[in-house]
Design a protein around this nucleic acid. Sequence first.
DNA 1: TAATAATCCTACTAATCCCATAGGATTATA
DNA 2: TATAATCCTATGGGATTAGTAGGATTATTA
Lengths: 137, 137
Amino acid sequence: MLSKKTKYGIKALIYLANSPENEPVSILDISTSEDISRKFLESILLLLRKTGFLSAKKGKGGGYYLRKNPQEIPMAAIIRILEGPIALLPCVSLNFYEKCADCSNEKECKIHNLMIEVRDSALKVLENRTLADIAYK
Amino acid sequence: MLSKKTKYGIKALIYLANSPENEPVSILDISTSEDISRKFLESILLLLRKTGFLSAKKGKGGGYYLRKNPQEIPMAAIIRILEGPIALLPCVSLNFYEKCADCSNEKECKIHNLMIEVRDSALKVLENRTLADIAYK
DNA sequence: TAATAATCCTACTAATCCCATAGGATTATA
DNA sequence: TATAATCCTATGGGATTAGTAGGATTATTA
């Protein structure tokens, strides 16, 4: 299940996608509009900035704005940053791969192969939907 | 990501599927063969028994055995019991549904609709693969 | 019938993660 | 210079995860 962090992050990104381009939006604005704890949202936006999704402008009139067009941001990329792996097991994760300690032969492992199928079917959706697809009404 | 509980549970079920039918297998047997903490496995098998996947026989020569044929057990059912919802949000879960507090119109919610797609694509795999598919070599 | 081998059941613990908050430092604007 | 914003680090409570402990119960068999 997605954490609140992820859900809040997505809602904030939708909010920014629906704001006038290149006009910074303050944390307070987003947190009151979307009813999200201000300080918690702050840490989320900080993360989204450090990972290249957002830029920030400090000082009066400052705030956050999208660095790229919403059409260029796949939902899979957002979820990976906020939530972590999309795969159900580390051994089938494309971006957070880890070998299973208890598995000597990955290619023969039936659980492994099943989880690859699940991952691919989920990715097929999440890689092909962008922020623009879910942001605009 | 799947918890160890889920992974251990699946491995135990595979082990039982590959054991001679109707011959009980002891916790100790499974835990040593699969290198799983005996006491932790005990609680997992207890859960699988209470939810109808396994039957148990007490006393000497006793142990656990599958209640149904592996072909009749979809992986989705196993994961739901051990892990919980397959969906990424409670508001799109078929078996663990919960309304989102922050969402007034589910049908119009774009996040909701995206997550339905993800859920359905994962279920398409997990409902159609049975324990038999992953147990036999 | 007594020893033994197994599950059953409840409670407990340590570690980690999630959600949120606090408070000051820094920076830009008017 | 006052103000409004982000930046950054630290902290705390609660929930979840993974595992442990120990005795109660039940069935077999010698």
